[in-house]
Design a protein around this nucleic acid. Sequence first.
DNA 1: AATTCATATGAACCATTGTTCATATGAAGG
DNA 2: CCTTCATATGAACAATGGTTCATATGAATT
Lengths: 120, 120
Amino acid sequence: MKSPNCLPECDYMHAHGDLVQRVHDQMPKEEQLFDLAELYKIFGDSTRIRILYCLKESEMCVCDIALLLGMTQSAISHQLSVLKKSKLVRYRREGKTVFYALADDHVTTILSQGMDHISE
Amino acid sequence: MKSPNCLPECDYMHAHGDLVQRVHDQMPKEEQLFDLAELYKIFGDSTRIRILYCLKESEMCVCDIALLLGMTQSAISHQLSVLKKSKLVRYRREGKTVFYALADDHVTTILSQGMDHISE
DNA sequence: AATTCATATGAACCATTGTTCATATGAAGG
DNA sequence: CCTTCATATGAACAATGGTTCATATGAATT
């Protein structure tokens, strides 16, 4: 009798069954892999990357970022809201102005990790 | 006289000019930030993440991966070609079969880096 | 309370991208 | 050489996502 998690049969391709089953059993949970992809998706846009690199230097308000990146306030605000939802940035309000900053050191680490990789 | 890299004027928003200029000067090159985003984009798809996690365990041929992930051979092949273009996987041919593997340890590192982050 | 200013947000539009389907390539075996 | 089998690839389709435009919120100032 097969395990409840066994793979579907494959009649037209004779794959290397043992290997496939072993690797299958060692895979992380589907949900975890999905969340991981979602995380990278956030970093996978150059506007958001540029915003994060701004905030790496200093906390900044929305219109400063917009000015610096040469984009509209709306576009920046939309992207900040994406970054906010993913907890990659935090913010504080001061009067009419909202200052954004990187959420924690982990974000910086991930950024420099990737930067290392492409500078090879 | 302004530096050749100075920012455009902004008449309707009175941004914090000094800060903006300072952060602007410390930003990495546009092209680098673009490439960084492109790298993360590759990781930002759950099919590709799942493929990478398969290959983390063992080198595998295309149809094994397809079987394991319950997807068509074509879909997997297309994604492998994306991963190949970005040098995240390498491959070797053995007769009719092509075996894929992770390109280097750096890929594993990036994967576990992200996995750390979401497991908080 | 009315206005101004910084930011947020909803809808629409266009571009990008992942999958499918059909077909091509290219190696091994008869 | 003709077939078979594993993989690759091109075109088409559907879905996702980033920007813009118009407008809303909400805080400060008069």
